[in-house]
């Protein structure tokens, strides 16, 4: 080895890359470029307006629907199904899921039933539920509740499972009664899994409300989109679809806020 500085060579650099880097502008840029390209294609007459309305036409339709109150009417009708359906399904799902997570007997009894019923697309049960509850609101709410129930059960009981055993042993070693162990260890320890399940169940609820409204409803975003399609009002149809995206984003945003406040400790 020579001591001459001029003889030394730098060690080649092999690291770097594969790290997610924040790119603040890029997502917006891509988003607007895509819309601009779409608008340009529409304006140039490359996209037939009947099959693919331009972004401007969709925005116009949205503004018009907002001003004449149609949009609010349909969104309200959908929300009146989603909210009670989701609450009922989540409430029942959490009760059953936590019971399955805590008691071996409930799990042994419930798991086969849940596993058998979970894969059924719940919309297939709508006709049966219509027979039971009539064509009105209860059958749609029940479909959503059922669709929400099963994923909630599964996320709640696997969340219970993921609570570290050593925390339960610790609680036992300090003489905590069983009810305290559930309330102070198992339930809070399950919250991350339960809240992650809420994201899934919320998207299931959105999916089912649209499907149920397409099968038999006068109002609601699903009904509106279907009617617009039947009348070949594609701009209105797309306005309804955009509304669904907005609704989904709002739900995800709201759940994000709940997660951040409930799971501050993470």
């Amino acid at each position: 080895m020579s001591d001459q500085r001029s003889d030394r060579q730098p060690v080649p650099f092999r690291g770097g890359g594969f790290n997610p880097m924040p790119r603040r502008l890029l997502p917006w840029l891509v988003f607007f470029l895509l819309i601009a390209a779409w608008q340009a294609a529409s304006s140039a007459g490359l996209l037939p307006a009947l099959f693919m309305p331009s972004p401007a036409a969709i925005v116009n339709a949205l503004v018009e629907l907002w001003l004449n109150g149609t949009l609010v009417e349909h969104v309200t009708a959908s929300l009146k199904r989603i909210i009670p359906g989701w609450i009922i399904g989540t409430g029942a799902g959490l009760a059953v899921g936590l019971a399955m997570g805590i008691f071996s007997a409930t799990r042994a009894a419930g798991l086969p039933i849940v596993s058998a019923l979970f894969p059924i697309p719940k919309i297939a049960l709508l006709p049966l539920l219509i027979l039971w509850f009539g064509i009105g609101e209860p059958s749609k709410v029940a479909t959503i509740a059922l669709g929400v129930f099963f994923p909630t059960v599964i996320s709640a009981y696997s969340a219970c499972d993921s609570v570290p055993r050593n925390l339960i042993r610790m609680a036992q070693s300090f003489g905590l009664p069983a009810t305290d162990i559930v309330a102070k260890i198992i339930v809070p320890g399950s919250m991350p899994g339960i809240l992650a399940g809420f994201r899934i169940s919320a998207s299931v609820a959105l999916l089912l409300v649209v499907a149920a409204e397409m099968i038999g409803a006068q109002y609601g975003i699903g009904a509106f989109v279907l009617q617009a399609g039947n009348l070949m009002q594609t701009d209105q149809l797309m306005a309804g679809v955009v509304m669904l995206s907005v609704l989904g984003l709002l739900i995800a945003w709201g759940l994000g806020i709940v997660e951040r406040s409930v799971l501050r400790w993470r």
Binding site: S173, L176, D180, K184, G189, W265
Partner: peptide, 28 residues
């Protein structure tokens, strides 16, 4: 609590503050 453990992995509740973790042993 005559027989009391100190654990290798600490066994702290991550969702409780330091004071509340200590208080867990007293609440009941």
């Amino acid at each position: 609590n005559p027989f009391t453990y100190i654990f290798q992995d600490f066994a702290l509740l991550p969702w409780r503050s330091v004071a509340d973790n200590v208080g867990l042993a007293l609440e009941h």
